Amino acid sequence: MDKPDFQHSSPAPALSVIVVAADSGPDLRDCVRLILACQLPLELILVDNDSRDGVPPAIARARQDDERLKVVYSHRNIGFGPAVNLGAKQASGPSLLILNPDCLPGEDDLRRLLAVQAAHPKAGLIGAVVCDADGRPDPASWRRDPLLHRALNTLLGRPGETVEIDREIPTELIQAEAVSGALMLLTREMFERLGGFDEKYFLHCEDLDLCRRVRDIGYQVLLAGDVRVTHGKGSSSRHRPIFVSRHKHRGMWRWFRKHDPAARNPALAAAVWLGIWGHFALQIPGQLWRRARSE
């Protein structure tokens, strides 16, 4: 006769945290440790984008008895958005937290974000203020769509709407056009309604795209100004600056073609294409020099 199974099972998760790793190093260990220290009913889905540093499988081995952790191996670097989509397919919680591996929210931060979500049914996506190690807020926490006319106003110092918001980031809940992709909370229902991330972005601007699509279907993007989270910024990108920069510029071009009315003008579109890829080319010597110095 088989012995009865008395193995304790965790309660159904209220939150599914999705973290994408790509040679993220020690930051990833800190992120996993902090999330799994929470008493919230949650699950952590770690998607490994073909890391070579051995950290994701080491975490899986060390925490093999913690059924809240799921490690998904993509076996090649499929890009950030596609990896999040892959992780979301494994999620069972009603809410999804998309989190960078160098972003370190505490349990109180997660509870406050979930409370905002519960209190605001028209909130399609919620972000937090991400800060450096000294507590300085990253301006990318509170963003506007990078429309061409705004970018030109910013570049030329002209009056009118600009891409940059030249005000101090507030400490209360506000509506925003876009928030930092380092930390984004949305319901699983909303994520599925949007079809997840647009997988034609490999890296960068897919968060701007997701925020824009939330607003396009009549929901709000909110910034919880009182939630401040430490963010290392760039732990996965320092090793491959040219690779990351190329995909960042590809993302900028895709966002422009997809969302900016100026893209309908062939002459403007050609000028923007030249500007984006000219900027990429000008950055390469400096990136090579900085990489050589760091080796």
Rank of each mutant, 00 (worst) to 15 (best):
D5G: 07
F6T: 07
H8C: 02
S9D: 10
S10L: 07
S10A: 10
P11Y: 06
P11R: 12
P11W: 06
P13L: 11
P13N: 13
V17S: 02
V19H: 08
A21L: 12
D23Y: 05
G25E: 09
P26L: 04
R29C: 14
D30N: 13
C31N: 15
C31H: 15
R33A: 15
C38T: 06
L40N: 09
P41A: 12
V47H: 01
D48F: 03
P57A: 10
R61K: 11
R61A: 14
E67S: 14
K70T: 12
K70D: 07
H75V: 02
H75C: 04
H75D: 14
R76G: 05
N77Q: 12
I78Q: 15
P82K: 07
A83M: 12
A88K: 05
K89D: 14
P94S: 08
N100V: 02
P101N: 03
P101I: 01
E107D: 04
E107L: 02
D109T: 03
R111V: 13
P121N: 03
A128D: 08
V130Y: 06
D134N: 14
D138V: 11
P139S: 06
P139W: 08
W142Y: 15
D145R: 14
R150P: 05
L152D: 01
R158K: 08
P159Q: 04
P159M: 08
E161Y: 05
T162E: 14
V179D: 05
V179A: 10
G181T: 00
L183E: 08
T187H: 06
R193T: 14
G195D: 05
D198Q: 10
L203S: 02
C205H: 10
C205N: 13
C205Q: 09
E206M: 01
C211E: 11
V221F: 04
V221T: 13
L223S: 11
A224H: 08
V227D: 12
G232C: 05
G232Y: 07
R238G: 06
R238N: 08
R240V: 06
F243W: 15
F243Y: 14
R246A: 07
G251A: 06
W255S: 04
K258W: 08
A262I: 01
H279G: 05
F280W: 09
L282S: 10
L282A: 13
P285W: 00
G286R: 12
W289Y: 14
W289D: 04
R291H: 14
R293W: 09
E295G: 03
